[in-house]
Amino acid sequence: MTNIFKIFVGVITLLTIFSCGSSKQNFSFFAIGDMPYNVPEDYERFEHVITAINEQDPAFTVHVGDIKGGSSPCTDAVFEKLYDYFQEFKNPVILTPGDNDWTDCHRKGAGEYDPVERLEQLRSVFYKDRKSMGQTKLDLHTQDTYPGYEKFVENALWEQKKILFATLHVVGSNNNFNPDNPADNTEFNERNTANLFWLEEVFRQAKNRNSQGLVLFLHAGMNYADSDQSGFKDFTKKLRQEVLNYENPVLLVYGDHHRFLIEKPLRNDDGRVVKNFTSLMVFGNPDMHAVQISVNRKYDALFEIRQHFIKEAE
């Protein structure tokens, strides 16, 4: 064998090893939200969603909130029924709450509940331990392990092949913030403080772990306006600050407004788009479809997004 041929074979071998190693580091996960809405009528459609996702065998699935419609019952029975459905996912599934799941439970059609009481019940049903739901469990690092934040069991982070993932409890209906009655914002103020702490901690963890990218999940279709009327003002300001101080790709996945949408909503101090930040809104009622997100390390933006239509759920 000539030296040139040996070198050629060696190069091919190295390229093959690198290619295989790189592909093994790639993986996919799913995101859904705002479903099932009309309960119990939509339960059968949701079963088809679960079946379709199980067939794809993702690393995990995240539901970004609103497990029922705003005027659908907020009963314990509905919570337990949805918890049981989440156990039918073959792989891990993680839920971050939506406004319909507790803040809107005061509505007549939802049962005229006390929203804070419903939030406590929601936490007791869906966040029984520091693990995901689903037939395969995923260990989660949760905010309740930090002194002063013991009630925030729903805010979690986990890592998959050098990518960090985190949920934050930010919901629609203006994040349960009432600008006209400051005395009515006790719940908001406490959760807002917890979310700001958790957001900072997630980015700190991403840097300390040398994560190659970060994915954030929350419910709200936030406005990014610096308005005192907005329940998202503090959070989006902190989010922008953290993203600007982080070099790797950040993907924010959310729901709330029920339409598939990919955007670049953040701007830097020069008014230019913040290139390493992308937001993705998932499908929602009446369109019970899913979004598949793949980590592809050959792609500068890192995250490849694909619509996953589920004909049986239409």
Rank of each mutant, 00 (worst) to 15 (best):
E190V: 07
S227H: 03
Q87Y: 00
Y83N: 10
S132C: 03
V93T: 06
K237Q: 14
P97S: 00
N26R: 10
G271I: 05
E47G: 11
Y83G: 07
H257W: 08
G109L: 09
I4K: 15
R306M: 12
K151A: 10
V78W: 11
Q212R: 13
V250E: 05
T278P: 05
W198A: 10
F260W: 11
I305G: 08
P182K: 03
K233G: 06
M281E: 15
A59S: 13
E242G: 04
A313Y: 00
E304Y: 11
G134A: 04
N176A: 13
F30S: 07
V274F: 07
E187C: 11
I32F: 06
N268T: 09
H141L: 14
H258W: 02
V250D: 06
E120M: 10
K6L: 13
K233L: 07
F126Y: 11
D84G: 15
T186C: 09
S72Q: 12
D99K: 01
Y127V: 05
I94T: 04
K298T: 13
D184F: 12
N155I: 03
V202F: 11
P179L: 05
Q229A: 15
W158D: 04
L119W: 09
Y43M: 15
F232W: 10
S279H: 06
E44A: 15
N296I: 12
K162N: 15
Q160L: 12
L266H: 01
E312C: 03
R45D: 14
L119T: 01
N185W: 02
V170D: 05
L199H: 12
S230F: 12
L261I: 10
I17D: 00
Q229G: 13
V116W: 06
I163F: 03
Q135A: 09
P40L: 10
T145P: 05
T142H: 04
P73A: 10
F177R: 06
I94E: 07
N268Q: 09
N185P: 01
G255C: 00
D256P: 13
V202N: 13
E247M: 10
F30Q: 08
V243S: 02
S124H: 07
Y113I: 05
N3P: 06
D234F: 07
V215C: 00
P147K: 04
N276Q: 10
E263H: 06
P249D: 06
A110M: 03
V282P: 02
L196I: 05
C74P: 14
N195W: 09
F217G: 00
F89W: 00
K237S: 15
F283E: 04
V243K: 01
D287K: 12
L280M: 01
T167K: 03
G109K: 14
G221M: 10
T193V: 05
F18T: 00
E201F: 10
N208A: 14
Q160H: 12
P147S: 06
N223P: 07
F30M: 12
T61Q: 02
L157I: 09
E154R: 01
N178T: 04
L244D: 08
P97F: 00
H257A: 11
H169M: 03
S279D: 14
H219E: 09
V78R: 12
N26E: 15
I305D: 08
F30A: 09
E247K: 14
F277T: 04
A313N: 00
N285V: 04
